[in-house]
Each structure stands twice: as structure tokens, then as C-alpha cells.
Amino acid sequence: MPIIVNVDVMLAKRKMKSKDLADAIGITVANLSILKTGKAKAVRFSTLAAICKELDCQPGDILEYRP
């Protein structure tokens, strides 16, 4: 998959734990782990919006395209 998810980078920048983010956006830690490891096949816009709101960033900061 050429799409890289940089949620862990943003989490480190914001000094936030995975569990706190999962609780804040209303998904399980397991699902957040799937997203971070790149196993996810799709991300809902609502989830993306919630992550951007919590981490105070743009979708481009979280998702990266590497061909």
C-alpha cells in the first residue's frame, strides 16, 4: 500500500498517548493500532476529521503518498 499513515509521528509531536487519542475520537485502541500499522483498508472521513481535530493538524500531516 503506497499510503503511509503518520499518526504515530503526530502523536509523538503532540506528546499524546495512543489510548488518549482512541478515547478522544471514540475508537478502540486495537482499531487505532490497525490504522497505525497500515493494515487498515479504508478510513472514514468522520474518523479522519476527529483525528485532525484532536491532533490539531491537516489530513496531509497524517497521510502520506509514497509510490
Partner: peptide, 8 residues
């Protein structure tokens, strides 16, 4: 089902 499960 797998696709739905892996949609976050």
C-alpha cells in the same frame, strides 16, 4: 466483511 472490519 473483512473490508468493513478493516475500515476505521
Amino acid at each position: 466483511k473483512q473490508e468493513t472490519e478493516l475500515t476505521i
